[in-house]
Design a protein around this nucleic acid. Structure first.
Lengths: 331, 331
DNA sequence: AGAAATAGCGCAAACGTTTGCGAAATGCTT
DNA sequence: AAGCATTTCGCAAACGTTTGCGCTATTTCT
């Protein structure tokens, strides 16, 4: 079964290819009568435009690229889900790529985007990315790039993030309000801008609002590491009354430690996390968390992309999604 | 900045476009000397082939489609991750689509695949899909389709699944070996072939190996429903000693009920689930589960796809990934 | 009624590749 | 030195669209 093309329709109807093309696009030059004929036949023959041909001719595809370090991630998969949803509504397809936090793969993926001439790219940097020149190259090729979550530190780029400073502050505020003052704070990779922002805001808030509080700051590399850090500190320092977890991964690691030590939440220890809200509900009592919504961030990123495409130059370069505290029973 | 094309290279070098094309593909007709010149210039000019043009000319893209009900799902996201990984290695891009369990969206997505002329499609049916004619249409258009996880019940299609019958039996066997005999078994959507298989194997195994056991079978629609079902049955029937959960969603629902009732695992109640292994490790003791690996299934699906593309007709139409019991402390 | 405007359509080029075929240049054979 | 094979390359068509321009009829205006 060969695909039906404009040519085939034109031959059946005895019209020219251009007429068919115009008829299907409701061009004013074509009479209503022929439009009707064409549209009917096109439907009957299951005509479906060849995306490659269109792309070749018009120089822009209806495809977006989206790259994350890993798809299997609570935050990113909701982000992806959100962007996919919007893309579909606008008739775009989404090519999804994961860098696996590997710079080489990241570059390969960028190449794929270029070869497929995606019209836009949603990019979350891998943790090791220092050189973003290949990302800048995308802009040269007129591929609009929206960075999200983990973004380059330089200015002049289009970025959407959670309001990371606010997030850090909200968490700190909640802890202070709960009258806790021996806090083990576990953050992620210290090189990432997202970590820096949250950590700075978090500790700064304590410094100004509750300078007497004891803050123990550590950086965990993964779930197991988080478990280890929690275990050692909890055993060494019996005064610790609260653990703050910068991410779901860290929260999961910490919970394992807490369960292993058979500590009761919130009597023996309080817990607060930054999360999209899924993991916290799995425990009892539910963990209090500062909400970061991949879903909302996805919507925002998409909005930015569309604004960018329509060349409305009044759009902000850097926008954020605000956050809020969701109270469980862990604090 | 305009893209460099074969034409541009040919003009600079004073050679024909065909020579450039052949040189870059290491065609024997071209001398080593010119090959070298061409390749060097191509690199210097950042030449990257235009995928649309190639696709238009050769009639096949280096793109796969992949459709799941939802990306935000422990099983599917590991499947996606796995397929993406393999695809990249083979130079394919992946267009990811989610049907949101909506038949209309499912069809729209199929249309996108057709318009983008994907060379293959990995498809997981939405739960409401009865009419698979639009999927069959894909095969007419020479788009190889591999169904996975939730698959059509008719024969003659290429399907990869977990060994669902085995999975059911393994679970039943483990329960019997643990000397449990009042089981609340929670399954998912009863219309899905995957549910039917697991349920049939599970209850059949009990009938033959332990006919005296009491089996209480229910079907949960979502997490909350699973919680409700567990709560009511546990309160009504104090004899229940084990809860079997067909999926992670159900497990999560059940765990909420258990935590709410402050039951101790495994003293007050035993739990066993079918899972990819992530959720079970979040609890303490860890939940015993029958492993279903989206990752492995992805690898298998990809292998099937490649075999299908290379037209080796000796490939099995239906293949499965075997499973095993992973012991936690919940049984 | 004749000129001018308009409606409706077709021609042909272009987007960037790939590839069968033919042509020129070179090497080899005797 | 003449014929032949081989090497090395170019021509041109094709993939399926879109679109500026031009060409006829037909309508409208004066």
């Amino acid at each position: 079964m060969t695909n039906t093309t404009l040519k085939k329709i034109s031959e059946v109807l005895g019209l020219s290819i251009s007429t068919i093309s115009r008829a299907l696009k409701n061009h004013p030059d074509i009479s209503e009568k022929t439009k009707k004929k064409v549209i009917e036949l096109a439907k009957a023959l299951d005509y479906e435009p060849n995306a490659s041909a269109i792309q070749l001719r018009t120089k822009h595809s209806k495809i977006f690229g989206l790259m994350v370090p890993s798809i299997s991630n609570f935050f990113y998969d909701s982000f992806i889900s959100s962007v996919e949803e919007e893309s579909r509504k606008e008739g775009f397809s989404l090519i999804i790529l994961q860098s696996s936090d590997d710079i080489e793969i990241e570059n390969e993926n960028l190449k794929l985007c270029r070869q497929n001439r995606v019209t836009g790219l949603f990019a979350c940097l891998s943790s090791g990315t220092k050189d973003i020149s290949s990302f800048l190259k995308m802009n040269d090729l007129d591929i609009k790039t929206i960075f999200f979550d983990i973004v380059p530190e330089i200015d002049g780029l289009n970025k959407v993030c959670m309001a990371d400073t606010r997030v850090g502050e909200i968490a700190a505020e909640a802890i202070i309000e709960a009258n806790k003052n021996h806090i083990l704070a576990l953050f992620g990779n210290a090189n990432l801008s997202i970590t820096k922002k949250r950590e700075f805001a978090f500790s700064q808030y304590f410094k100004t609002k509750s300078p007497a509080s004891k803050l123990l700051i550590e950086h965990a590399t993964d779930i197991e590491n988080a478990t280890q850090l929690a275990l050692t500190h909890l055993e060494k320092n019996k005064l610790i009354d609260t653990i703050f977890c910068m991410s779901d991964e860290i929260l999961m690691g910490v919970m394992k430690a807490i369960q292993k030590l058979k500590l009761k939440i919130p009597n023996d220890i309080s817990v607060i996390a930054i999360s999209n809200g899924f993991i916290p509900t799995l425990f009892y009592p539910q963990i209090t968390y500062v909400e970061t919504s991949g879903y909302k961030l996805g919507k925002l990123a998409f909005k930015q992309m569309m604004a960018n495409l329509s060349d409305s130059f009044d759009t902000e370069l850097e926008t954020t999604v605000d956050s809020k505290l969701v109270k469980g029973g862990s604090l």
